[in-house]
Computed example of a mutant assay.
Amino acid sequence: MTTSQPAKTRPMRADARRNYERLLAAAATVLEEQGTEASLEEVARRAGVGIGTLYRHFPTRAALLEAVLQESMATLESRANVLAATPDPAAGLLLWLRDLAAYAARYRGLASTVMVNLVDERTEFESCAGMLHAAGKLLQRAQLSGGIRADVSMSDAVTLVNALVWSLEQGGGDPEQFERLFTVLADGLRHPAGA
């Protein structure tokens, strides 16, 4: 009886690697201009490749979006880890949520995409899971310090931030309104005085 060996992943050919990198660069530009529902044909055109090449590298829109956003999610994950070690983790959590809002506002439609992927157990956003795990540790530390309500989950906090970004996106994105609403959100997350 023979046992099959797992197939080794072959390194990407040089031309395939170039196409992959051109697709990522084009996608970042097109998504910033047109939002998360941007035309994939436009991404392929700007990268100088056919749509088939795009789909060989990224079989779904979510896979392309995940690849484009991976670095930002890794940055947010690192930031959550750093802020969890600060003397005031509640203030750190609010700083992290502000960073998350800036990230979600970068591409039109990203806030709603992130909210959908938070509740979908089949999500393709693997790097989102690492970011949320790190942020969850930050939240837990902030709750243990008494600075953040104990009945708030990470999913609650991220949903609130993304809902705020989404609502501002729909209304034209007034920065002053964002500041007011973020202050209300932050006040709601803080542990009630005297509780």
Rank of each mutant, 00 (worst) to 15 (best):
S155Q: 14
Q140K: 12
M154A: 10
V116G: 10
L139E: 08
L139H: 09
D156P: 08
A129F: 03
A129I: 11
V165E: 09
L139W: 02
K137C: 04
W166N: 10
T159W: 01
V119I: 14
V119A: 13
A163H: 05
G130K: 06
T113R: 06
T123W: 10
A102G: 09
S145E: 12
S155N: 12
Y103C: 13
L164I: 05
T159D: 07
Q143I: 03
L110C: 07
R106W: 00
V152L: 15
A102D: 13
Y107C: 08
R149Q: 04
R108S: 12
V119G: 09
T159P: 05
L168F: 00
R108W: 09
L168D: 07
G136C: 01
E121G: 13
L138P: 08
V119D: 15
L110S: 00
D151R: 05
G146E: 12
L138E: 13
A135L: 05
V165K: 00
G147I: 06
A104I: 11
L144W: 11
Y107S: 07
E124V: 04
A129V: 14
A163S: 14
C128D: 10
N117V: 08
V161W: 00
V114G: 04
S167R: 09
M154G: 00
G146N: 10
F125Q: 14
V119R: 14
L160F: 07
A150P: 00
H133I: 03
V114T: 09
S145Y: 04
G130Y: 15
L139A: 01
D151C: 10
L118G: 06
R122D: 13
H133E: 12
E126D: 15
S112P: 06
G146C: 06
R106I: 03
M115V: 13
A134V: 03
V114N: 01
V119M: 07
T123I: 06
N162Y: 04
F125T: 05
T159Q: 06
A129H: 13
A163D: 03
D151F: 11
A134I: 08
G146V: 03
E124G: 14
A105H: 14
H133D: 10
Q140T: 07
A142L: 05
R141Y: 00
L138T: 04
S153L: 06
V158A: 15
L132A: 09
Y107N: 10
A163I: 00
L160P: 06
M115T: 13
L144T: 11
I148Q: 10
R141H: 08
A111N: 05
R149M: 04
Q143N: 07
L118C: 02
L118T: 05
M154R: 09
T113D: 12
R108H: 13
E126C: 02
A104L: 15
G147Q: 11
R108F: 12
A150Q: 15
C128S: 11
